[in-house]
């Protein structure tokens, strides 16, 4: 019994925007499951009352002054674009609006 179902693997691939073949999904199911088995060692650790560490540095309030600096030229901004038109990045049609 794998720790993660094929349906979950498919859902995660969708969230991650990865197009994968059925074969690749099946291999990933096995790999993810064994990795999660390995991670299980810490999932069970008692950590009640332990604060999470998101960052190794105890820094706060790193701010920059509101002073304009140089921008890229439009042609440099678009130089690496797979497709561009009218000074903009061109993409295939968008289904669905931004959430």
């Amino acid at each position: 019994m794998e720790r993660i179902s094929l349906a979950e693997v498919r859902h995660v691939a969708q969230l991650a925007r990865l197009q994968l073949s059925d074969e690749e999904l099946a291999v990933l199911q096995g790999e993810l499951s064994s990795l999660l088995d390995h991670v299980e060692a810490i999932v069970a650790l008692p950590t009640e009352g332990v604060a999470p560490t998101a960052h190794p540095l105890p820094l706060s309030n790193v701010l920059r002054p509101d002073v304009p600096g140089p921008c890229l030229e439009q042609r440099d901004a678009l130089a690496a674009a797979p497709e561009a038109a009218e000074g903009r990045f061109l993409v295939p049609r968008i289904l669905g609006e931004a959430p």
């Binding site: 920059r64 921008c71 439009q74």
Partner: peptide, 25 residues
Amino acid sequence: ATKLFCACPNAFGSEPNTNVCPVCL
């Protein structure tokens, strides 16, 4: 005067993709 995380101008109505830098791109 500038964007939230970079020094590009916060301006309306400029030529497209001219108020951009590595950060906001």
